[in-house]
Amino acid sequence: MKVLSWLTIALVVLWAVVPALFTGYDPLAGVPAEKLRPPSLEHLFGTDAVGRDLFARVVHGSVHSLSGAFVAVAVGLLAGTLLGLLAGSTGGLLDDAVMRVADVLLSVPGLLLALTVIILLGPGTVNVAIAVGIGSVAAFARLARSEVVRVRRSDYVEAAFGSGGRFPAVLWRHVLPNSLGPIIALAALQFGVAILAISTLGFLGYGAEPPTPEWGLLISEGRNYLATSWWLTTLPGVVVVAVVLAASRISRSIGRDRT
């Protein structure tokens, strides 16, 4: 399962990097005569209402979804870990303040939070990614803090202070590396979640503008033909599901290796 998950992710990353290797069709230019063809050898995923090859659109769309997810995870990981590290290592008032804000953020549904941020930032691919990232800051911060608090109490951290270590040096050299395991696992999990969230926002029309082939947008566009052309929604959906499952699987294996 682990190998299969890594293969899935590797394939999707390759799609994003060298789409031309996987499909000869243009994702934007349609051939009206070949509209709404069901999947066949010629068109693996069939074609859409204006005769564009759906597989080409999924392949070319992966770069938007993946980079969006990457930015989202990066925002959440960096901001969350930094906040958690500060809260956990200094304690006191700062700790309380950060954690109460995190509590509030965690109590709001993630999608609602992302939507709120988008309303503030305005729609667009990058903004969607940032919004989704902000939605996951609280989760990262809380996890990072709990790990830091655990490591902070250990003998070797005290020994590091005992051998003359300054606060930032000890944080960087001992606390951070030893707290990172579960945070990396959460990042892998969040990657899948972010793809789903970005697709959801794309579906709702807050992300990429048509005709950009973003995964959520593809599913959304196919919705109008649900009764007649099942492949337009189902096949991009299957791709999204596969990537999300693979990410969560990898996350679990990281989590297990680290503990």
Partner: peptide, 23 residues
């Protein structure tokens, strides 16, 4: 306080927990 550390050092009871496992 840091200067003080050059004069006084502590050795812990448990050598399994006083060394950073990742170093």
């Amino acid at each position: 306080a840091r200067d003080f550390r050059r004069h006084v050092q502590l050795v812990y009871q448990n050598p399994y927990s006083s060394l950073d496992p990742r170093q």
